[in-house]
């Protein structure tokens, strides 16, 4: 862990405002990573072992279907976070995440985070609450996209 990572974790929207003791505990599980264009951050079916905090670049959350090719479900940019399946058994990724260009991120080791959550209920509560906040935002955005607001089927 470096002071730089510590500072980034403390200022990332996912964790900003949490007590310094908590963010440094998270940062203690983190390392910086970098990906080139088209490199996969996570792969469907593989063990879900990382939470990515995006520092720069754009990550596509993807899924592929035989007849439809690769479909980008959503993109995550600077200030966003990627990877939630590490929180829930069986800890396997459900989507792919691909770098759409150079991507820099801080990667938190999920085993490390889970161990700290098991050991410290308050730490666990704070972490889950923050993650749930982002998931709620994503859920709401997904619901609105389901409505196909700009759809052309409203012609009268």
């Amino acid at each position: 862990m470096t002071a730089e990572v510590d500072a980034f974790v403390a200022s990332h929207p996912l964790f900003a405002g949490l007590p310094a003791g908590v963010t440094s505990e998270i940062a203690a599980c983190c390392r910086t990573v970098a990906y080139g264009p088209d490199e996969l951050l996570l792969v469907e079916g593989q063990p879900a072992d990382t939470l990515f905090l995006v520092q720069r670049g754009r990550v596509a959350i993807e899924i592929h279907g035989a007849d439809r090719g690769t479909l980008v479900v959503e993109t995550v940019e600077t200030g966003g976070a990627v990877g939630w399946s590490w929180l829930f058994p069986p800890y396997r990724w459900n989507f792919d995440a691909r770098a759409l260009g150079p991507v820099g991120a801080v990667a938190a080791d999920a085993t490390c985070l889970r161990a700290k959550m098991d050991a410290d209920d308050e730490f666990g509560r704070l972490l889950v609450t923050r993650v749930a906040g982002v998931l709620l935002e994503r859920l709401q955005a997904t619901r609105l996209r389901l409505l196909d607001l700009y759809g052309a089927d409203r012609a009268g």
Partner: peptide, 8 residues
């Protein structure tokens, strides 16, 4: 081929 933003 779209490398731009996807989302609301």
């Amino acid at each position: 081929g779209w490398t731009g933003h996807v989302g609301l």
